[in-house]
Amino acid sequence: MSATSHAHHDEAGQAPLVGSLGVDSRKLGLWAFIGSETLFFTALITTHLIFYARTKAELTASGMLAHLDPKHFLGINLTSVLAAILLASSLTMVLALAASKAKEWQKFRFWLLATIILGSSFVLGQAYEFSHLYAEGLKLAPQFVYEGETVKSLFGVTFFTMTGFHGLHVTLGVIWLIAVYFKVRKFPASPENPMDVELVGLYWHFVDLVWVGIFTLIYLI
C-alpha cells in the first residue's frame, strides 16, 4: 500500500504520511480494516455458536450429550499450546516494534524472526490438529462420527470454516511479517520502518485477539 500526503505535511521532521487528523494514513486504514474484520470473525463465531447450541440441545434431548458432545474432539492440551504460542508471538512482535523504534536492528531482527517462527508453528500446529480431527471422524460435513456413532450436526462444518479462516489470516500475517523482515533488511535507514513494523504488528495482534475469542468461546466453554 502506498499513500499520498499533503504537500504541507511533507516537511522534514514529520513522521511519514501524517495527515489532517495527525495520524498516519496507513495506520488509520488498518485500524478501520481491523474493525471490519472484527465483524467478519464475529459472524463466523456466531454461526458456530448457533449450530453448536442446536447440536447440544438435540443431544441433551436424546440423553447422549455426555457421550457424544462434539467438544470431545477438541483436545485442550494442543489448543492451550497453540494459544500460548500465539500469545508469545504477540509479545515478541511488540518487542520487535520497540526495538525498531529504538533503531536496535539486531534486536529487532531477533524478535521479528521469533514472531515468524512462532506464527509458523501455530499454522503447523493447526494443520496437525485438522488432520488429527479428520482422522478421528470430524470432517467438513454435516455429520460427525464419534466412536463409531454417526451424529447429524454441523459442528465440523462451522468449526473448520471458522478456524480455517483464522488460520488463513495467520498464514497471510506470516507472509507479511517475512516481507517486512526483508524490507527492513534492504532499507535499514528508511524512516518508514517503525511504521511498517507497527502495521504488521497491529494485524498480528488482531489475529491473536481473534484466537483469544475462539479459544474461550469454542474450546473452553
Partner: peptide, 30 residues
C-alpha cells in the same frame, strides 16, 4: 492485547473510534 500490545490506550482517539464502534456492532449482532 488491545490496550497495551496494540497501544490503543493512549493512542489517537480516532483509532479507538474505528475499533470500538464495530466491536460494539459485533457484540450486538452476536
Amino acid at each position: 492485547v488491545v490496550m497495551f500490545f496494540m497501544h490503543l490506550r493512549g493512542d489517537a482517539r480516532i483509532f479507538q473510534l474505528v475499533f470500538i464502534v464495530p466491536l460494539t456492532f459485533a457484540v450486538t449482532m452476536c
